[in-house]
Simulated scan of single mutants.
Amino acid sequence: MKIFVTGATGWIGSTVVDQLLAAGHDITGLARSDDSAAALSAKGARALRGDLDDLAGIRAGAEAAEAVVHLANKHDFADQAATNRSERGAVQAVGEVLAGSHRPFVVAAGLAFLAPGRTATEADRSPFHGVDSLRGGSENLALEFAEKGVGTVVVRFAPTVHGAGDHGFLAGVVATARAKGVSAYAGDGANRWAAVHREDAGRVVRLALERGVPAGTVMHAAAEDGLPFRDIAEAVGRGLGLPTASVPVDNAAEHFGWLHKFATADMCASADATRTLLGWTPTGPTLEEDLDSGCYYR
């Protein structure tokens, strides 16, 4: 299958590309730099130079493909509005190209803030609509295209997709603990984070393409439903040789900085329907195993 991938050299995208190439697929990845283009070429994939704001390039990539995987996101928390606009624009561009073709369109989404205080399931609908909402409301926009002849499949990733080399939220938690000299959690630390190892997350995307998942399907890449943040903080404390302590919820923004909304959020999710639909059984290390392995502290 000829597949166009945005975010092809990113944390999740690079393992998705590796797995798709290993399965014999023909991959073109969106590359925003010479280094990214070279990395794709070295793997045996083609590079299409451009970024999330290059809508003409994104349309060209989608037009030439039999399937599209959209994993790119700016993740610019200093300019969330621009991040949201770019995300929505990219999904809109691909959806318009694929309309009426029934070609697969796998769209990355998040489990953060989906169902606070309870375990989210694949049946939960995203509360985010419109360009001013989280990720520009791109999940709901993508699903609207399923009604226009696009094979939209949404994959919601756990808030921590962990493993050696991770530079996401968990790496931020480690960096904060180093800087503050204490591995902290907010309040009682009972808020939970779903988790999945990077290789297992990549396999959800590959299987979603290969198994002919029905348009409009929502899936969860979450191997562990939810680990209390206090347990995460304690594992980080062990790894860094630092004390673990509670900070008042009202002081979380001061302590965690840009991470505070996530460090205090309950982001628990089940992937039971995804496991059944895909025959997916996670095999990678657990979050605590990765934290105890030392890979986050080098």
Rank of each mutant, 00 (worst) to 15 (best):
A215W: 05
A222M: 06
M219C: 12
A175T: 04
T217V: 02
L207V: 09
L207G: 11
R206S: 09
G187F: 12
D200V: 12
L209S: 03
V174N: 03
A223E: 04
K180D: 01
V173D: 02
V173T: 14
R178I: 00
V205P: 13
R198C: 03
A223C: 02
R178W: 01
G189F: 06
V173Q: 11
S183D: 01
A222V: 07
V182T: 13
G181R: 02
P228E: 13
G189L: 11
G216W: 14
V213H: 06
V182I: 12
H220A: 11
D200K: 11
V182S: 14
V196Y: 02
V182F: 07
A175Y: 09
A223G: 15
H197R: 07
G189D: 03
K180Y: 05
Y185P: 11
A190C: 04
R211V: 01
G212T: 05
A179E: 15
A194I: 06
V173G: 00
T217C: 10
Y185S: 00
R203K: 14
N191M: 10
H220L: 09
A186C: 12
G202A: 07
E199R: 14
Y185N: 09
A194R: 01
G189I: 04
R192V: 02
G202T: 11
V196A: 02
V205N: 13
V213S: 09
R178Q: 05
S183P: 06
R192W: 02
A201C: 05
A177M: 00
D225V: 14
G216K: 12
V213Y: 02
D225H: 14
W193S: 00
R192E: 08
H220F: 13
L227T: 15
V174E: 00
G202V: 10
R198F: 01
A215I: 01
R206T: 13
H220R: 08
H220M: 12
G181Y: 11
A208D: 06
L207H: 08
G187D: 08
T217M: 10
E210R: 12
P228Y: 05
L209K: 01
G189W: 10
N191F: 12
V205A: 05
G202Y: 14
A221E: 08
Y185M: 00
P228Q: 07
E210T: 01
P228M: 05
R203M: 14
V218S: 11
G226K: 05
V205I: 12
V213A: 07
V196N: 01
G216A: 06
R198T: 14
A177F: 00
E224T: 13
G202S: 09
E199F: 10
A184M: 09
V173S: 03
V182Y: 05
A195W: 10
V204Q: 05
S183C: 04
D200Y: 14
N191Y: 09
E210Q: 03
R211F: 10
T176D: 00
A215H: 12
D200P: 04
L209T: 10
G181Q: 01
E199C: 08
V173M: 11
G189Y: 01
